[in-house]
Amino acid sequence: MDARVINPFITVCFSILETILGEVPQRGTPAAQAADCTCHQVNVMVGFTGALTGNVIYGMPLTTADKIASIMIGTPVRTFDSMAASAIAELANMISGNVLMELSSIGLECDMTPPTIVRGRNVKMSTLDIPAIAIPFTTNVGELTVVVGVHPMIK
């Protein structure tokens, strides 16, 4: 996958996670991932359309989702309720939206769909036949993996 497409996800994740969590995350090594992947307990899927088409999946363990939501909401999340889900969806929305700005600055005009939350163990999520790159981040509240499965739209 084109580094021009992947790099915005990395830089924006660093920036937004630092803003929200108050600490710079550590990035692991990006790796190709099978299109049909088993993801985390909490996943947020955002669709991309326009110059790039496909999906981006933000996956994390439930404990991480609870902790991130607690920070965003400002009160401890004891059960992953609708407010916590909404906060995590908004995190994915903010990252994706800011990535769109970065992509736009290099001439790739895209749009995105509202985020969809998928919960549950052993959930299989697919980017269909679009090759995906998984970018792992380690934050002060746990792991977050961003699976980027987008490719250029052929007109």
């Binding site: 400002g74 609708s82 908004e90």
Partner: peptide, 12 residues
């Protein structure tokens, strides 16, 4: 806003 989290944050 479509997210209850963002509506609540802005309201607060």
């Amino acid at each position: 806003d479509d997210t209850v989290f963002m509506r609540t944050s802005l309201k607060n």
